[in-house]
Amino acid sequence: MGKALEVIGLSKRFLGLQALKEVSLHLEEGEILAVIGPNGAGKSTLLNLLSGLIKPDQGRILLLGRDISHLPPETRTHLGLGRAFQIVQPFPELSVRENLLVGALFGKPGLKRKEAEAWVAEVLDLTGLAPRAEALAGELTLLEDKRLELARALATRPKVLLLDEVMAGLRPKEAEEAVALVRRIRDSGVSVLFIEHLMPVVRALADRVVVLDHGEVIAEGTYEKVAQEERVREAYLGRRA
């Protein structure tokens, strides 16, 4: 199996604050990788660098073997990188279906309108949003918003999907459904990198876990393995006490 995503020595400073320091990690094809860490560990910075919303000071990002470090966000999406945001940002004046159509039509250039519409119908079914397809995105409940965020990223037909705390705020039952949904997405051939605070979700979903603290990778391995490590326990517990 090849590497879906590879990050080599990625660094980023904000006004003197070292947000990420020489972070290297990779995502195997067909894998579900969790990136965890306490608040301020640099998880969101990592995702913003990966999707191209901010530019790295140093380091490289390879998507399916191709260097995308200097490509703009839209080109990364065209090459197969999808992202769902932590703070849901639907286009409120568009309907749910139109929100997905944006991803489907522009996520992969050259797609015909009919094909895009068919694909959107599929994603609507998959994510359970079909009954709300014609509602304005500004009128959705939080749960529906979360689903829309995921569905819209999926609509771009990603090969690698970045998920930023898409389970936050969900009830246990809803989170369980979401976990099953992410598994189905992976089974359809998408590699998934996700950021999550809810440890049960991480345990249930992740094949492998990478732990960030103060912008550095401090542990990597299965959930059980990293949960044992002293540094990880310190990072999570030590500073809270």
Partner: peptide
């Protein structure tokens, strides 16, 4: 419409 409502999200959607 996507550009108007959020440029960053629009770009990430391609």
């Amino acid at each position: 419409a996507a550009t108007r409502q959020s440029e960053a999200v629009a770009r990430v959607l391609g």
